[in-house]
Structure formats: structure tokens, C-alpha cells
């Protein structure tokens, strides 16, 4: 091997004009094949953590994650009131929400979507917040039905939260008392379009 270690010293890569260079991300792309095995891993690490890798992550990996995430929304499998019946029938054979990748999960740690299906009382409010905080980011909330949207017929009652958006941020509201499963499917597809639009 005539290549001395000094010949593979990092040289400044020519930066494209539209990418700002911070502290000269010196990634030896050209000479990377000439590196020995013990030199390859530190160089690869440097490449992954460099600015170019971050931009590649933003332009290539994030859209893939967005596409995968919005087509596999996992809602939390819980029910608060009669809207839960419509929620359940959305997963039945006639409506078959699984063709959109919507699969209910029983643990909030496996979910990225919370469908608040029913009347939220003040007693259950902090349990709902706890469940929401246990869900990993990114996460979305659908307020299903009139009760979750604004309290519904119980809006002035002494025990009912007048709209779940007082507790957690809501992305999609679905009207109805209760909404039919088609309306819930439409809300989920609206949320998918919203996620695509936001690029989360």
C-alpha cells in the first residue's frame, strides 16, 4: 500500500452554491474507497453527522417517513361514549379502516393518533392528558362528534369539558351525533392530507 495516511487527509469538498457551509463539512467522498477499514467508520460517522447528511435527511428521509406515517395512523383503542360504537364499526368488514393502514393499538406508546370519541368529563380530563402525553411524537388528535368538539348537548353541564381542545391540541373536528363511520373515515383521510401538507 503506497497510500500513506497523509494522502487521505480530509480535503474540503466543493460546496454547491445553494448550500451554506458550516465549519467546512470535510467529508472525503472521493477517497472513501481508498480508506482502510479502521478509517472507514469514523469517516462514515462524520459524513452522517455533517450538514450534507442533515439536508439529505430533510429532503429524502423525511418525506419517506411522512408517507409511511400518514398511511399507517395507529389510533388509540379506547372509547368514551356512544361514538365508540361508530369507531368500532369503522374497523368492521363493511368499512374496513385497515385498508388505509388504520389499526387500533391498545397502548398509547404504540399510537400516533388519538380519536376522542365521546363526552369528556372533568373527571376523565387528566387521564386523557396523561394518555396524550404518553404517545410518542409526532402525534395527532381527532375530535369525533359534537361532545368532543364542543361539549355537545352537555355544554353547560357541571361535569363536562366544553370541547376537548381545551385539553389537547386538535387537528380534525368531525361533526355528528354520532358521526357515521364514513364520516370518521373522511376525517382520517382529511388528517392524512393535512399531514402531507404540513410535511411533518
Amino acid at each position: 500500500m503506497s497510500a500513506a495516511p497523509s494522502s487521505v487527509a480530509p480535503t474540503a469538498a466543493p460546496a454547491p452554491p445553494d448550500i451554506p457551509v458550516i465549519d467546512a463539512p470535510s467529508v472525503p467522498f472521493v477517497e472513501i474507497e481508498a480508506l482502510r477499514a479502521e478509517q472507514f467508520i469514523p469517516a462514515a460517522k462524520e459524513a452522517l453527522t455533517s450538514l450534507l447528511a442533515e439536508q439529505a435527511q430533510g429532503k429524502l428521509i423525511r418525506p419517506v417517513f411522512n408517507w409511511a406515517g400518514r398511511n399507517s395512523l395507529f389510533p388509540l383503542h379506547w372509547g368514551l361514549a356512544c361514538c365508540a360504537i361508530e369507531f368500532a364499526s369503522m374497523f368492521s368488514a363493511r368499512h374496513d379502516a385497515e385498508r388505509f393502514g388504520v389499526v387500533p393499538r391498545s397502548s398509547p406508546r404504540q399510537c400516533d393518533l388519538m380519536i376522542v370519541n365521546g363526552t369528556v368529563t372533568w373527571k376523565v380530563a387528566h387521564k386523557l392528558i396523561t394518555l396524550y402525553e404518553q404517545m410518542p411524537e409526532p402525534k395527532w388528535v381527532i375530535a369525533m362528534g359534537n361532545c368532543a368538539t364542543g361539549g355537545g348537548p352537555f355544554r353547560t353541564a357541571y361535569s363536562v369539558v366544553p370541547g376537548v381542545d381545551k385539553l389537547v391540541p386538535v387537528d380534525v373536528y368531525i361533526a355528528g351525533c354520532p358521526p357515521r363511520p364514513e364520516a370518521l373515515l373522511d376525517g382520517i383521510l382529511t388528517l392524512e392530507a393535512l399531514i402531507r401538507e404540513r410535511g411533518e
Binding site: W122, A125, H126, I129, G151, R155, T156, A157, Y158, S159, P162, K166, L167
Partner: peptide, 19 residues
């Protein structure tokens, strides 16, 4: 809430400390 002096409130007046 079941006292006769208890009026139906506007929802904002009824917010209690839930956390």
C-alpha cells in the same frame, strides 16, 4: 351541583383545575 342555588354556568366559569 344539585343545590338549587347552583345555576347553569357558561362553560368558561366552570373550568376547574384538572392538572
Amino acid at each position: 351541583p344539585l343545590l338549587r342555588s347552583f345555576k347553569l354556568h357558561e362553560p368558561e366559569e366552570l373550568e376547574v383545575k384538572v392538572r
